[in-house]
Design a protein around this nucleic acid. Sequence first.
DNA 1: ATTACTACTAACCTTTAGTTTACTACTAAT
DNA 2: ATTAGTAGTAAACTAAAGGTTAGTAGTAAT
Lengths: 119, 119
Amino acid sequence: MEQKIMYSDTQCAKNIDAVEDALYVLGGKWKLRIVIALISGHNRFNELQRIIKGISARVLSNELKQLELNGLAKRVVQADKTPVVVEYVPTEYAETLKDVVAALADWGQKHKKKITSHE
Amino acid sequence: MEQKIMYSDTQCAKNIDAVEDALYVLGGKWKLRIVIALISGHNRFNELQRIIKGISARVLSNELKQLELNGLAKRVVQADKTPVVVEYVPTEYAETLKDVVAALADWGQKHKKKITSHE
DNA sequence: ATTACTACTAACCTTTAGTTTACTACTAAT
DNA sequence: ATTAGTAGTAAACTAAAGGTTAGTAGTAAT
């Protein structure tokens, strides 16, 4: 009936479902930025707030809890130190996001070049 | 001073900025799903609304306008046909998103497997 | 003694995103 | 004549996300 379908409807639905599952964990304004910061070795609360420009303590705190729930970060308290040091460390699972981050960062960079040059 | 930084602060900031630029265009609940649907050959308004489950006409209409503004989709009216047929076609530029979609869909799929199996 | 840093939380408020219902104007089929 | 589909828009609303301000309890430096 239709001629121009490039991929099957089921493939399309599969892709939509899959990005839906990804966005459930990674969606929103801050999650990916936080993951990048964590992977880049920024592990302490105020350090994260400093490097992720514009994020409030409230939001950072909430997002870190969700990242922990989803197995991407771990809250580590070093109770021996005084004052107590809290670190948020990316899990091994968070490393699996490197391709996603790379693809998105790459596209974002190219996109910026595009809009700042010939537009 | 610090030993454990894996990547430089500037690299981290660059990545954060780049995904920020990408999310400005692609962020939100629907944009990527619509792009996938468009690339998959679903081009008409009601067709898109049918395949993208849960999206309302209002939101679909708004998102399509934004995708057009950002050069990812083009609204094509076939005035000759009766009734008039409106098609939303992905631009060439939208094709550059394939890597992003693939990375995200791949991760989403693996993530779903992870949480539905051993959790 | 004051200032500042740490890692947050509470309460409140605003903004953005999304939903629902209804409606338009036209066509095409039953 | 009625029903259904096309491609939407308008108005009014709710829900979710995020921001702002202030404050806690402790340490450590000036």
